[in-house]
Design a protein around this nucleic acid. Structure first.
Length: 500
RNA sequence: GGGUCGUUAGCUCAGCUGGUAGAGCAGCGGACUUUUAAUCCGUUGGUCGCAAGUUCGAAUCUUGCACGACCCA
């Protein structure tokens, strides 16, 4: 692409890099320095699986010819013969390069190649004295020169920051990191399989919203030049997906990014992946069954079972408990009495005592929720659905027909963290309009996470939306759980970082 | 936002109560035709995160800043 005479300016050049640039310059004198005419015949891992267990004599009799490629991760030179370990996308395979096999000239050339170079080799499989499957090379070529030294071969790359900032290097050096993202792909694939098997349709809705909605969160703002109007990166796809339900798409799901302009932590990245799904003629009970089914399906697929280890402790995904907010509070705090839990003044004092900030205008339900967050949430280790959320914190959820102030809503907690949130959807356009008005009032009072009034969404509901259940599952947190990752940054390939 | 810890060679890390920096790996030179973090001999490489201060003298002590990890809000 760029003129190769111009070496890119780099702030951290060193002697090793200077030497490698000289080697590259010498190669450019002789031939195409970055050839792309070598065709691989085999990946490393399948070779190990197919031939790794064979006896030396049997393997030699077979004379298996292979052409392999990969990055040189280990190199051992012994005069007239050398070993190199190549790493490809599947695993590792060893090369044996000798004067007898490739000629002394090529072998001498090989000796000048460096760790991290991308090599290709052709040859016959054999087993060394110690039984390692090895390619006895008849041809070895340098496909791409490494200029920047790899981390030390034994300890590898351990610096967390560098792992996040230079993920490519982390992926080269750390098998465990490659596994996490392999599993992440399996998990997302497993979720899709499950949804498709349940007759759900995958859709894509706007990432840029004229009115941010579907959640209580601060949005990122951008600007559309041609329309000369602000646009918001979406905080949730919910209102668009429910418009689709109005339109007759009775089972829809979307797996995509949400953006929230809030703090960063081991559990929060500004952009994160959610799956939301909506099913007409269902309710929050069905959504809980779906959530349980999805998580169990992907756990079996990615972890091989329903009993998994997270940060040294077992999580049992075979049973999902259901508790109301008050039941959960009392389960972990049996000293509280019913009278206390229905006393606003006592609730406010207790929340404050535990270090929380009670919202003074909240009713009993809101205060009970705050108390739950302070004294029970972090203890919900095995999967637990918490139900009976108060209407004031659930502006899009259907109210209970029998219990005023309560919505048909649940949140799922695992390892003390929220993993999913679902409810029977509010499909009464007049109720929804007045709840939006209530949100606008709160926004005017200074709550910048309160929702906007979305007139088109109300218009859609006015055409009548079937009774519907909906749910969102945090994919990053699900991946954290199933890969035993302590930080969300471990499961996002390029987590948001401050500039270097 | 608060607290604790950290930042030394390309990488992983030592470096004591202050006296101008060290190992292993990587690199370079040499020996070695079945090695496994190969081994053996020799050798290059440093603005000790940045900036002030104390001191005859600072990687080391003090302060501030930057970045990161963990914990708390």
């Amino acid at each position: 692409m760029s003129e190769h005479e111009q070496t890119s300016p780099s702030l951290d050049e060193n002697q090793i890099m200077a030497e490698r640039r000289q080697k590259l310059a010498a190669i450019r004198e002789q031939r195409v320095a970055f050839p792309n005419d070598f065709k691989r015949s085999h990946f490393a891992k399948p070779l190990q699986e197919t031939h790794g267990a064979k006896e030396r004599e049997a393997l030699e009799a077979e004379k298996v010819e292979v052409a392999v490629v990969g990055r040189m991760m280990l190199k051992r030179v012994m005069g007239k013969a050398s070993f190199a370990t190549l790493q490809d996308g599947s695993g590792r395979i060893q090369l044996y390069i000798s004067n007898d096999g490739v000629g002394s000239e090529t072998h001498e050339e090989f000796k000048r190649w460096d760790m991290g170079d991308i090599l290709a080799a052709r040859g016959t499989l054999f087993k060394t004295k110690t039984g390692e499957l090895t390619v006895q090379a008849t041809e070895v070529r340098l496909l791409a020169k490494n200029l920047r030294p790899l981390p030390e071969k034994f300890h590898g790359l351990t610096d967390q920051e560098q792992k996040y900032r230079q993920r490519y290097l982390d992926l080269i050096m750390n098998e465990s990191s490659r596994e996490v993202f392999f599993k992440r792909s399996q998990i997302v694939q497993g979720v899709r399989e499950y949804m498709v098997a349940e007759q759900y349709l995958e859709v894509e809705t706007p990432m840029m919203h004229p009115i941010p909605g579907g959640a209580s969160a601060k949005p990122f703002v951008t600007h559309h030049n041609a329309l000369d109007m602000p646009l918001y990166l979406r905080i949730a796809p919910e209102l668009y997906l429910k418009r689709l339900v109005v339109g007759g798409m009775e089972r829809v799901f979307e797996i995509n990014r949400n953006f929230r302009n809030e703090g960063m932590s081991t559990r929060h990245n500004p952009e994160f992946t959610m799956m939301e799904f909506y099913e007409a003629y269902s309710d929050y009970h069905r959504m809980m069954e779906m959530t349980e089914g999805i998580i169990q399906h992907v756990a079996r697929k990615a972890c091989g079972g329903l009993h998994i280890q997270y940060q040294g402790k077992t999580v049992d995904l075979s049973h999902f408990e259901r508790l109301t907010i008050v039941e959960a509070i009392k389960k972990y705090n049996p000293q509280y009495t019913d009278a206390q839990l229905n006393d606003r003044a006592w609730l406010k004092a207790e929340i404050a005592r535990l270090g929380g900030k009670p919202v003074l205008s909240d009713g009993i339900g809101g205060l009970q929720l705050s108390l739950f967050e302070e004294c029970a949430e972090s203890q919900l280790w095995n999967p637990t659905f918490i139900v009976d959320y108060p209407v004031e914190v659930s502006p899009l959820a259907r109210g209970s027909d029998t219990r005023p102030g309560i919505t048909e809503r649940f949140e799922l907690f695992v390892v003390g963290r929220e993993l999913a949130n679902g409810y029977s959807e509010l499909n009464d356009p007049e109720d929804q309009a007045s709840r939006f008005m209530e949100q606008v009032k709160q926004k005017d009072a200074g709550d910048d996470e309160a929702m906007h009034y979305d007139a088109d969404y109300i218009r859609a509901l006015e055409y009548a939306m079937p009774p519907t259940g909906g749910c969102g599952i945090g994919i990053d947190r699900l991946v954290m759980l199933l890969t035993d990752a302590p930080s969300i940054r471990d499961v996002i390939l390029f987590p948001q970082m401050r500039p270097e």
